[in-house]
Design a protein around this nucleic acid. Structure first.
Lengths: 191, 191
DNA sequence: TTAATTTATTACCATAGGTTAACTTTCACA
DNA sequence: TGTGAAAGTTAACCTATGGTAATAAATTAA
């Protein structure tokens, strides 16, 4: 709870009233390794803020192949934007990769919070801009880079993640098979 | 100009004062086919609203290969989010694919406009949410689909674009070569 | 600690899609 | 309206990555 407040306070000033309001709408939850917080097939519209640990959102195709949309650690938001803003059933699952602690806010309550606290609206709009930039960069990487290049970029940009996340999930984030990643790693670390 | 106002008015109510302010900060521009409105190498931070015609943002790699980030038609925004929110030089170019008319707003002025007109902030935040959902969907498609499947999705979702946009640019949007796309089209339309 | 399960590696073969290059069609504009 | 350039197609060949399967290593649970 306080972690989210700290995170906000780094960027905007928050009155006690707002603080109380926030505490009211936030649900704290501890997750064990492997626990699913959002399953595909659900209709839940909620935002998840990671206090500690590591989460992953992914999409499972008919042939049981997983595609990782996002990893999230401390101070990151993770949610299924595709169902958040449509009325379709979720196709995305979110799982905890470690023991973790998260804060959950329902989209409905968050919308109300925006209204009561316009500064947060501004803060969030700026967050979204940065996120759009990041997503566009990822798209460019997917379009332009070879498997090896994508992996190198990944360990450069997500050094903190690399130790926590199993390789087959990194592979599913990069759009390659675990076997391919193994091949790449063998080459990379052969000296 | 009025087109942007109409677009806003569909979603939010705008006072005459705000209307005047908008007219003040917007620059209207007509583009001929092939004209570059933003070149890589520039430091311009601006948002482009398409009134008519069709634009494309793309990234050019060292080996002169183009990768299309986005197409935009009437009532769409297009800009280089990666440089908009960093201090790096742009690596992205934006070109007009047809005769088009656009409205340009500098990012600085837009930030001021947000302050003076909080309703627009809300409107924009919601736009960004939808855009994030769309970008995540594109990432999923890039991760999960074969070249043929990506092309089929494209003509389904972007039917209006398909007639305007040359195939080699569609290929560069899907992350495949023009030759590959040709092969796919041959198969698809062979009956 | 051991057994069971999950993850990672390796090898071998298959293939989608890339590359090169020649040819055809379409388009812009002189 | 003709000509040169740009875009699209086709074919032959090639390569990076996928698929399958067997084994090894690591992690989890008992």
């Amino acid at each position: 709870m306080n972690e989210l407040l700290d995170y906000f306070k780094k960027n905007i000033s928050i009155s006690l009233e707002i603080e109380d309001k926030l505490k009211e709408i936030i649900v704290e939850k501890n997750l064990v390794k492997g626990e699913l917080i959002l399953t595909n097939d659900s209709l839940k519209k909620e935002h998840i803020f990671v206090v500690s640990g590591c989460l992953r959102s992914f999409y499972e195709t008919e042939n049981a192949k997983e595609h990782t949309i996002q990893f999230a650690i401390k101070n990151w938001w993770i949610s299924d934007y595709m169902t958040l803003y449509t009325d379709h059933k979720s196709v995305v699952s979110i799982e905890s990769l470690t023991h973790s602690k998260v804060l959950i806010i329902s989209n409905y309550k968050l919308e109300q919070f925006y209204k009561e606290f316009p500064d947060f609206e501004v803060f969030q709009r700026k967050n979204f801009e940065k996120r759009i930039a990041a997503l566009q960069r990822r798209i460019l990487n997917l379009l332009a880079l070879s498997a090896t290049e994508k992996y190198n970029q990944f360990i450069e940009n997500y050094a903190e993640f690399e130790k926590i996340i199993p390789n087959y999930q990194i592979a599913s984030f990069l759009g390659i098979t675990p076997q391919s990643l193994s091949r790449i790693r063998k080459e990379k670390f052969k000296n």
